[in-house]
Write a protein that binds this DNA or RNA. Structure first.
Lengths: 215, 215
DNA sequence: TTGAAATTCAAACGCTCGTTTGAAGCGAAA
DNA sequence: TTTCGCTTCAAACGAGCGTTTGAATTTCAA
């Protein structure tokens, strides 16, 4: 009887718990971010014991890393966000598609939206676990904003300008996704449904493309 | 001997401690935000006892409120950020001035910059103490972005569009100020000095005015 | 100088957090 | 059926947080 056999034998119950924890962690981290999401809430939602996180993943960090791995894997397989899709379109359409995809979490609650929410949290103040992760395996979606921006900037644009522009663009949808809950309350009262999402995409695309001065 | 007399009599040492705490709290909150700034660090910098915060201000909230009061008072007296100054300029100049003033904390460490940093923190995830404060006495500087934006939008623009645009503009400089420390490290490596600040102002002003599509 | 009020201080309280512990439960091989 | 290793569990640990406590100290009018 090898370790492999043992692992296979025990894998059913183990995998059940692991999967439940990852699923619960995904929703909790999407809602509250890494620092704000507590192990107690995650294990509660997964109907597992608190110690299970440490037993199966070595700690909160390890569980988060699993979520990030699943996120990058899913997002890389999602055709909506693949770089080739962007390159096949005109710069204007690419920009609009980019904004629209990253704003979708405002009205959707599916898995991809939760992953995008997690990235939106990390765009504010990245956790150390996240930094360690993107150094090890940088998610492809982080190149997307730069890719879109480069379609507009001249070839000879300095790297600093590209960085400014990339950060500038990437954080426009991130802000709305991350703070949707707060913006829904006073004094903003922005409730997002399909139609207001479209208007937001229109507005951001217009500003990003032509600026405030050219409506 | 009235309470007033007692207050006056005891005011020297009291005011010294109070002022030291407020000064220390300003720098700590500017550095780490409200949640991230601890009472222990504040009292350490002020060379005061931990209990002094509760004794003089009733708690961390109360101390923060004093900082916010000082911030709004100072910022309202600062001619750089007054609404009249903006109205006296062309829309383009007003926008540029707005961006420049709110990006100044990147290179300056003076009192006004610390206050702007605190507001930048609050723009991400406002503390309850902050929400309670702005309801009681809304700082004037929060109307500035809307004022600038309205110079560009047509009179009949829907309120939702104005809100979108205001949030869009207001968060552009806030992001850089808040995350300056992180952006200085890899993979961005954006160190800000006078010249790079000017380039950032140029870039953001250009994008905000004319968008990516019209360099 | 005296006494009462104001202020400071070290220590501890109560809470939440991530993590650890050691016993109990469980399933499959012997 | 017994045994052994993997998994679960309730409980506690230790660290950090804001806050409270009660005694010591300072201050100053009387």
């Amino acid at each position: 009887m090898s370790n492999l056999d043992q692992a296979r034998v025990a894998s059913r119950s183990t995998e059940t718990t692991r999967a439940a924890l990852i699923k619960a962690a995904t929703s909790v981290f999407a809602e509250y971010g890494y620092d704000g999401g507590s192990v107690r809430l995650i294990t509660q939602r997964a109907m597992a014991n608190q110690a299970a996180v440490n037993y199966h993943f070595g700690g909160k960090d390890g569980l988060y890393r699993e979520v990030l791995i699943a996120a990058t894997k899913t997002l890389e397989q999602s055709s909506f966000l693949c770089p080739e899709e962007l390159d096949a379109r005109s710069p204007e359409e690419a920009l609009r598609l980019y904004l629209r995809q990253f704003l979708l979490p405002l009205v959707k609650r599916d898995r991809v939206s939760m992953y995008l929410r997690i990235f939106a949290w990390e765009s504010v103040r990245p956790s150390e676990a996240f930094n360690a992760f993107i150094v090890a395996s940088p998610p492809r979606i982080f190149q997307l904003a730069e890719r879109v921006v480069k379609r507009f900037l001249p070839e000879e644009a300095p790297a600093e300008t590209v960085t400014f522009a990339t950060l500038w663009l990437a954080h426009q949808p991130m802000f709305f996704v991350r703070d949707a809950e707060r913006l829904a309350r006073a004094p903003f009262a922005l409730k997002f449904d399909e139609s207001s999402l479209e208007r937001l995409v229109d507005t951001l695309a217009s500003f990003s493309l032509r600026g405030l001065g050219n409506p």
